[in-house]
Simulated scan of single mutants.
Amino acid sequence: MLAGTELGQSKSQDGAVEIIRTLRVARRSAMKARTQAANQLRAVLVTAPDQLREQLRGLSLARLVATATRFRPGEPDTLEAAGKLALKCLATRYRQLDEEIKALDTQINRLAHQAAPALMSIKGIGPDTAAALLIAAGDKPDRLHSEAAFAHMCGAAPIPASSGNTLAICRLSYDPRAQAYATRRTSEGKTKREIIRCLKRYLAREVYKAITSDNTTTRGTPPAITDLAA
């Protein structure tokens, strides 16, 4: 870039993907706050009076939230009443944040299907994963000059990296192509780590093709796993 021979294209930040990114900022904040509320619920319960602790001990998080929101503690003049009021406030906050996250998920899901139907059609890619991939590529993925460039950006180039592990491992559990590929490479002496690394590279290729096809009139099929480089 300093020499002026390679000039990259920046993200446009003015389309559907930018809308998704903005909503994910709010979602990430709500997720963090919900986790904090859940942790504080458990912390208050640990130090609550014996009678209250025994009443709530062993409840799942969902049942604890449901029970605590029904408390009618009255004035917090006793330790038990104060504990109930604190638990009720935290449980109410958790429930409100949960509803907020669900509302944001609904909108992100709708926008992801509109912006990238081909990407969303790939088994194993849900709205949140699709949103993250779309944000990485930007509103104009054609600015990435090749699928190899996209793979490097995702950390899925043929070098040891953890990106895409979950999706690659999921593919091994249900995709006959991935299973056949793993069997063949295992017989050739490849380790599981090496096989997953190659699968991640394939997944980056498939995702890139889906993302770019959503921005053109051309549709194509993903490459066969057997075409992967060693």
Rank of each mutant, 00 (worst) to 15 (best):
C170T: 06
L45V: 02
L172K: 05
Y94D: 01
A26L: 13
V65C: 08
I169S: 14
I195V: 01
R184A: 08
Q107W: 13
N165E: 15
M31N: 15
I159L: 11
S12R: 03
S162P: 08
Y174H: 03
L144I: 13
F71Y: 02
D105M: 04
A151K: 04
C89R: 10
R53V: 04
V46G: 02
T183V: 04
A91S: 02
S163G: 12
T191I: 06
A210K: 05
A131H: 15
T183I: 01
G15A: 08
L41W: 03
R110C: 02
L85W: 04
A16C: 07
A148M: 03
A48Y: 01
R110K: 00
A43N: 04
T216F: 10
I169N: 15
R24A: 08
S163N: 15
A130Y: 11
D77A: 15
A230V: 14
L104P: 08
K209V: 05
K190P: 01
A182T: 03
L167Y: 13
L85V: 04
C89V: 14
E194A: 11
A62V: 15
G164C: 06
E100T: 13
Y208M: 00
R34G: 10
T218H: 15
S12M: 05
L61I: 09
S60W: 06
P141R: 03
R184H: 10
Q40L: 09
Q114M: 04
F150N: 10
L134D: 13
K102V: 04
I19G: 13
A131L: 14
Y94A: 02
G220N: 10
A43L: 02
R72D: 08
R184P: 07
A103R: 13
F71D: 00
F150Q: 09
R93L: 02
K190D: 13
Q179W: 01
L97G: 07
A224S: 12
I196L: 06
L172F: 00
K102T: 08
M153V: 12
S173D: 00
A210C: 10
E75N: 07
A26W: 09
A62G: 12
L199P: 04
A43R: 06
R95M: 03
A16E: 13
S121C: 06
S163T: 10
D98W: 00
A151I: 12
V46N: 05
G138M: 02
N215Y: 09
M120K: 01
G126W: 02
E147M: 00
Q96F: 05
P127N: 11
T183M: 04
S163P: 12
R197M: 06
Q9L: 14
R184Q: 09
H152F: 06
K192G: 07
S10Y: 11
A82V: 00
R34I: 04
D139N: 12
E75F: 05
N215A: 11
D214Q: 09
L45P: 01
L45W: 00
R72G: 01
A149H: 05
S12T: 07
A43E: 11
T67Y: 07
T22L: 15
S163M: 09
Y202I: 06
K209H: 03
Q179D: 02
K102G: 09
T5A: 13
L64N: 12
R185I: 00
L61T: 12
I125M: 07
N215M: 11
G15D: 09
A132K: 15
K123L: 02
E54S: 14
D175G: 11
L97A: 07
C154N: 15
D77T: 15
D128G: 15
A224E: 11
A148W: 03
R70C: 02
V44N: 02
A161G: 10
T221W: 14
A136L: 11
